Simulated assay, not measured.
Amino acid sequence: MSQPLRGKTAIVTGSSRGIGRAIAEVLAADGASVVVNYVGNRKAADDVVAAISANGGKALAIQADISMPADVRRLFDETESRLGAIDIVVANVGIAVIKPLVEASEADFDLVFGTNAKGTFFTLQEAAKRVRDGGRIIAVSTGGTKMFFTQTALYLGSKGAVEQFVRVLSRELGPRGVTVNALSPGFTDTELLPERDRAVAAGMSPFGRIGAPRDVADVAVFLASDEARWLTGENIQAGGGVA
């Protein structure tokens, strides 16, 4: 079986479940050694590592709270110590607080922006310092930033910041041959998508369904591949045609 990423090392933040887990599993299936990052659920992360190992892949779990820059640095330190130089970083962590803008508290703001914007910023910063020349950096945003939804100001605002980080960093790392792209999933079968919204979401896609985590993961792994070497600074929509 072809493994185009054999010999590569990848970090996927927030990869104990959902889209992050799917990305970690597909990267490993393509030959990469993968760090499965988690914040609190060690069993879920160990389950991902076990699933990857059962399929012949290589993975290890590392705990780190991405909202804390010191933890981000430790995540990269441990990865380099245990797996060597880093080739691929997928900044996938994301949380949402869904409520009208006028009801959002300072604590809500700090929680969402602290994880989605601040956490991703410092993940991208470490990736920029440590990824080998010719490497790949991918930040997961959301298709929601190009749509109009109520009660999502915090989530979409934080992800909008991520998209601007990507645009700037792609210019800064271009001379090293490092690509930096955003990946924006649409409605996907994860715990972030409320059950009440799923039928409507499916009807918005020409395919008549919501996405599976693997649908998004395959696009992420393409962005991590050599075939994506001419893509940088882009926001790739992986939403099944939802516009």
Rank of each mutant, 00 (worst) to 15 (best):
T123R: 07
Y38D: 01
F148G: 12
A28H: 02
A54R: 09
F109C: 12
K159Y: 15
E191W: 06
E103H: 11
E191M: 01
T13D: 02
G57W: 00
L156V: 13
R130Y: 07
Q237P: 06
L231A: 04
P175H: 09
N41R: 08
R229T: 13
D71G: 12
V166Y: 07
I137S: 00
A202Y: 14
A220C: 10
A44I: 07
R196L: 14
M147R: 15
Y155E: 00
A117T: 08
A91M: 10
K99V: 10
V93C: 11
V112H: 04
S67P: 05
A238F: 11
G114P: 10
S205R: 01
T9H: 08
D108S: 07
S141Q: 06
A128R: 08
L193W: 12
L156K: 09
F207Y: 12
V200D: 08
G14N: 13
G135D: 04
A85Y: 00
T115R: 11
A104Y: 08
G119A: 05
P194Q: 02
F122A: 03
V93Y: 09
K8V: 05
S105K: 02
L5K: 01
T115G: 11
E25G: 03
D133C: 11
A29Y: 14
S105E: 03
A182P: 15
T9C: 11
Y38V: 04
P175S: 05
V178Q: 05
R214V: 06
A182Q: 06
W230T: 01
N55D: 03
S15Q: 08
R82L: 14
V36W: 00
I210M: 09
G160Y: 02
V26E: 15
D133Y: 10
I11F: 09
A64Q: 03
A32Y: 03
R229G: 09
V162I: 09
Y38N: 02
R73I: 15
P4S: 08
A182Y: 05
T190R: 11
D110N: 12
V35E: 00
A220L: 04
L75A: 12
A127G: 06
A29W: 11
A45P: 07
S16V: 09
E106S: 12
G177D: 14
V35Y: 00
Q63G: 13
S170M: 09
G14V: 12
V131E: 01
M147F: 15
V166H: 06
I88T: 02
G40F: 13
A28M: 05
A127K: 02
F113T: 04
A238K: 07
K8M: 06
R167I: 04
A22V: 08
R21K: 13
D87M: 05
I98L: 11
A199S: 13
G14I: 10
P69N: 10
I52T: 01
Q3G: 00
L60S: 06
A212C: 12
